[in-house]
Simulated assay, not measured.
Amino acid sequence: MRSEPLLATEPPAPVRDIGELYAIAFTQTETAAQRYGKLAAAGDEAFEPVRCVFEALCLRENERAEAIKEACIAAIGRAPTQADLRWMPIDLVPAEELSDLKNSLLSTAYSAWALAVRHRERAFIFWTYVAARAETGIVRATAESMAREALRDGNLLRRERRLAWRAERREALAGDAPAATELSSAALFESLLLKDIFRWSQEAPAPQRRRLLSLIGDGSQAPPPEADALPHTEAIEEIKRRALRYAEHLSSIYLDEADKAVDQSRLELAQQLAARSIARLADLRSIASLPR
């Protein structure tokens, strides 16, 4: 089971309004454009194949920033500003990742496109979290739209990555043949997770219980047959921790499956499962942080 989190830091608070959401998106996109732009202007002749990738990525991010600005003006009558931010937007394109690629003697166009794919996956995860924690419909809908855009963009970048792989290896993409998948284990983890969520709900206060049961599609408030033997507080805390581990692992499985998908239908299914799983993880973490 993976130990690293899907995001180094989760959004620290729900996004308050649409102005704040656009300010976050604009800041993240400008940062990405600046960092990609530095690599597009850096390096010697040997870096040329990689530099071309970052020139394209810089252009894409500048276009995205302009689109975000226009959408913000259409929504609230003005461009996004730093004054709308209540917390520092999470870095979707960490400088250290780009530095590692720039300084590596093994950097290729393929590794550059692969890094860009990870950045858009990170954006998808971030906006899915924002949507899951949104307190207003317009913020939720706009965050979901940004998550879908990150998925679409990630699909385009994956195609570029495959082309780069073929060009570098001069043979068919190794992943073109159906690969072994972790989806076969996902059903087991889903079953274990749902069981733990139900056990967790039985010791939770009524509002939390309803939220937990809604995650497993069980609106019943009737006690289970073993209600007289529910675990003590220590056991419940362990159930919470285990449920969160299962939920995060499932999100990782679905994201990995999307990354390895070799046809559109498989990709779309994995992306849908990933979006649902990440939203569920965000809900579980939110519930776990509430006082009992």
Rank of each mutant, 00 (worst) to 15 (best):
201 S>E: 08
135 E>V: 03
146 M>H: 10
168 E>A: 05
172 A>L: 14
187 A>R: 08
153 D>L: 12
187 A>E: 15
171 E>C: 10
162 R>P: 05
189 F>M: 07
159 R>F: 08
199 R>Q: 11
138 I>V: 11
209 R>C: 06
192 L>H: 06
169 R>D: 08
208 Q>K: 08
143 A>I: 13
180 A>L: 15
148 R>K: 03
187 A>S: 10
165 W>F: 12
188 L>Y: 13
133 R>C: 05
158 R>Y: 04
199 R>G: 05
135 E>T: 09
165 W>M: 07
191 S>V: 10
173 L>Q: 14
129 Y>G: 02
137 G>T: 02
163 L>R: 09
127 W>C: 02
211 R>A: 10
177 A>G: 09
144 E>H: 01
137 G>D: 14
154 G>H: 05
214 S>K: 01
139 V>A: 04
144 E>L: 14
195 K>N: 09
168 E>H: 01
204 A>L: 06
147 A>Y: 08
159 R>N: 01
174 A>D: 10
211 R>H: 02
154 G>K: 11
151 L>P: 02
134 A>F: 13
180 A>P: 02
181 T>P: 04
146 M>Y: 10
192 L>C: 06
151 L>E: 15
184 S>H: 09
153 D>Y: 12
190 E>W: 14
168 E>T: 00
128 T>G: 10
134 A>Q: 07
135 E>L: 11
205 P>Y: 06
195 K>E: 14
127 W>S: 03
143 A>K: 04
176 D>G: 06
210 R>N: 02
170 R>A: 04
181 T>G: 01
150 A>T: 07
182 E>V: 08
187 A>L: 15
158 R>K: 07
161 R>P: 05
175 G>T: 07
143 A>C: 07
141 A>F: 10
137 G>Q: 13
131 A>Q: 06
185 S>Y: 15
139 V>T: 02
209 R>F: 06
195 K>D: 13
175 G>W: 11
144 E>C: 00
180 A>K: 09
150 A>M: 15
154 G>I: 13
199 R>C: 04
156 L>Y: 05
130 V>G: 03
209 R>T: 00
148 R>W: 12
164 A>H: 05
185 S>T: 14
171 E>Q: 14
214 S>W: 00
137 G>C: 05
135 E>W: 05
149 E>F: 12
188 L>N: 13
170 R>N: 09
172 A>K: 08
156 L>H: 01
199 R>E: 13
181 T>E: 14
179 A>F: 07
135 E>F: 00
156 L>E: 10
151 L>C: 11
